[in-house]
Nucleic acid binder design. Structure first.
Length: 420
RNA sequence: GGGGGAGUGUCCCGAGUGGCAAAGGGGGCGGACUGUAAAUCCGCUGGCUAUGCCUUCGUAGGUUCGAGUCCUACCUCCCCCA
């Protein structure tokens, strides 16, 4: 995509070398702005959940590098657009979130950003506006007159995303069509308010971003730029960030740090180098060395990936504790007190706790039925011994010296049961 | 407004033609093999106080010993014509 272009700015040089860049509307132009430290760029995030997940990490890292290389990042909250409901996809049951819920989500999301960006009023400090600030004040007639007249339907119809839907005879709602306009308008508004000149986003956002640039030109903003990131999938083609339990959240109250660490530790071999470049800040030569490790040695690289990536979100100390917990558990087969722990009351323990309900309480299985099936399949272990009798009862005799019983599902998921 | 078609196991797609806890995929989980990887093979993939009971095929009624399947009304979506 970049052809023979060689970036002169730290920002583009870094971000291109690390594999963040898919497409740019004008490499030279953007590079010059970044070189001068005048690049103010934004990325939009929606507020449909109270945390962001790994899927959002790529754009977040972009903003972080932007700031680290002396420019100003703006994560834009889609509080306004979220109020309309996301019309993409065929999920008709999209619920409109209440304003309170949206605010709550925004607060959770801001916690995540605070770990990656410095906020404040300085030149390179991040700011986090919400498009509700201007979108909710729009007046339909005025919007049509001042902004709407600049949109060419012909042009929008020729966009890939739209065209595809038309060809397949798929529904394309009016709201969805208007999303482009609102998003384009956000870009112009951010330029007016913050002097923002670039929008970044996933490659699927290209059309929307370019529409914003176009609108800007017609409405008299300075030249605007688009920069997109590749769509991230694992080497075997799966979407990033989905696991059994659901999304891989970035807030520790939604996903324990230990589990977050495990997510990265279990990356596919072929992804290790790419992930190190995208999700850690290790120097590239170090990454090249790790990436070159063959066979089982790649595991060392994955441990580093896990710890570094975890440290970015949860802090160095928590990351290292997770690494240590994993080391004890997997390499020594020893019991680590830092595994996820469930406390049960003395009353529940009583004379003994049925093995089925113990696993349900631990959250390892969803129902006693599933526990039964897992026992049949040899998937459950108590204190590292495979369970074979579904009528077995756990008693205090099985407590370890530390006063816990270790329950495991498969080789990787462990929970400690601690009676009071 | 007129005519035609569709909604299935709460992850998704999708058979289903009165005996159905409902074919087959995908995904997921577990087992084997490995290196906490991938690929491959095998098993599982409604709930429960469990040889039985309860709940599931858009919603609500009805016919029947028995309904995902037939009838009626309603809801939602799609297509064609105006």
């Amino acid at each position: 995509m970049s052809g023979s272009f060689t970036p002169k700015s730290d920002f583009l040089a870094t971000v291109m070398a690390r594999g963040f860049v898919h497409q740019c509307s004008d490499f030279e132009g953007l590079d010059a702005k970044a070189k001068a430290g005048e690049l103010i760029a934004y990325i939009g995030f929606d507020c449909t959940a109270s945390s962001l997940h790994v899927g959002s990490l790529l754009p977040i890292m972009m903003l972080r590098w932007l700031q680290k290389t002396g420019n100003k990042p703006i994560p834009l909250m889609g509080g306004g657009t979220t109020r309309v409901g996301d019309p993409s996809g065929k999920d008709e049951s999209r619920q409109l979130l209440s304003i309170e819920k949206i605010d709550e989500n925004k607060a959770g999301i801001k916690q995540v950003f605070a770990k990656f960006l410095n906020f404040g009023a300085g030149k390179t400090d991040a700011e986090m506006p919400d498009n509700a600030e201007w979108l909710t004040k729009l007046n339909y007639i005025e919007f049509l007159r001042d902004v709407g007249r600049h949109f060419s339907v012909n042009r929008m119809l020729s966009m890939d995303s739209v065209n595809m839907r038309l060809e397949r005879d798929q529904e394309l709602s009016f709201i969805e069509f208007n999303y482009m306009c609102l998003q384009a308008y956000d870009f112009v508004e951010l330029n007016r308010r913050y002097g923002c000149i670039a929008q970044m986003g996933g490659s699927d956002q290209w059309g929307n971003i370019v529409t914003g640039i176009d609108l800007g030109r017609r409405m008299g903003t300075p030249q605007l730029y688009a920069l997109t990131t590749p769509l991230l999938t694992t080497a075997s083609g799966a979407k990033m960030g989905k696991t059994a339990a659901g999304a891989v959240w970035l807030n520790s109250d939604m996903l324990p740090v230990y589990d977050y660490w495990q997510f990265w530790r279990n990356a596919e071999d072929a992804d290790t180098g790419r992930f190190l470049k995208l999700f850690t800040e290790l120097p590239l030569d170090e990454i090249a060395r790790l990436e070159a490790l063959g066979g089982a040695e790649i595991n060392e690289a994955k441990k580093i990936l896990a710890t570094e990536a975890t440290a970015m979100v949860h802090g160095r100390a928590a990351a290292e504790q997770a690494a240590e917990t994993a080391r004890k558990t997997f390499e020594e087969g020893a019991l680590s007190e830092n595994l996820p722990t469930i406390t049960i009351s003395a009353a529940e323990m009583g004379e003994g706790l049925g093995i089925l309900s113990a696993f349900v309480k631990a959250g390892l299985v969803a129902s006693t039925g599933e526990a039964r099936r897992q026992i049949k399949g040899g998937g459950l272990r108590v204190n590292d011994v495979a369970a074979s009798d579904e009528k077995a009862v756990l008693t205090r005799d099985q407590l370890s010296a530390e006063g816990v019983i270790k329950l495991s599902l498969g080789r990787k998921k462990h929970v400690l049961l601690r009676p009071e």
